[in-house]
């Protein structure tokens, strides 16, 4: 079962004040490659072309998600979402390494709902009985925090992967 405990540093909070300056936002977003809708208001803009579970994504979510990703996921999935080395090869334990979350991996083949379930409940939540090193974060992260991490990951994908994943999500009718 999961060996990692999840987040230790709960001080890295996910809420970004509305008072944040647009300049700061834009520079932060530049690092994630997010395109921001032109807005005159210096408040939480929507991220163009990105939704999560059908809802629009706000720039503050992406920023919060970036920090939460660094704190909770980067140790295995890589600081630049690059995954563990040689991630297609099984470990000696018989389990698979952590795959990349960028476009070189397969994360973008999964619907929003499935990504959420995997992060909250581990891979066993979508493939019954499956053994893996991916921890279940349901105890350590709130639903909003999990969503923020996933929108951050999604925000890094090129257009093709985003569109593919949007379609997979739209077709995901399961419940």
């Amino acid at each position: 079962m999961p060996m990692n405990k999840g987040p230790k540093d709960r001080s890295a909070k996910c809420t970004v004040r509305r008072s944040v300056h647009l300049a700061a936002l834009v520079s932060a977003l530049a690092t994630t490659g997010v395109v921001v809708l032109a807005q005159s208001e210096p408040v939480d803009p929507r991220v163009e072309g990105l939704t999560f579970l059908g809802e629009p994504v706000l720039a503050s979510q992406v920023m919060a998600g970036q920090q939460l990703y660094a704190d909770n996921c980067a140790s295995c999935h890589g600081a630049s979402l690059e995954g563990q080395p040689d991630w297609r090869r099984r470990l000696d334990t018989g389990r698979m390494p952590a795959p990349p979350h960028d476009d070189s991996g397969h994360t973008w083949h999964h619907s929003d709902r499935m990504l959420f379930q995997i992060t909250k409940g581990g891979v066993g939540a979508v493939v019954p009985g499956y053994e893996s090193d991916m921890p279940a974060f349901g105890e350590d992260l709130t639903d909003a925090e999990i969503a923020a991490i996933l929108v951050y990951i999604k925000s890094t994908w090129p257009e093709r992967q985003r569109e593919f994943q949007a379609e997979v999500s739209a077709n995901d009718t399961g419940g």
Partner: peptide
């Protein structure tokens, strides 16, 4: 799956829903 995420048992389509 042909995205090569993971090997898995063959399960009925509604197995997860039932679970």
């Amino acid at each position: 799956p042909d995205c090569f995420c993971r090997w898995q048992d063959v399960q009925p389509g509604n197995a997860m829903d039932a679970l």
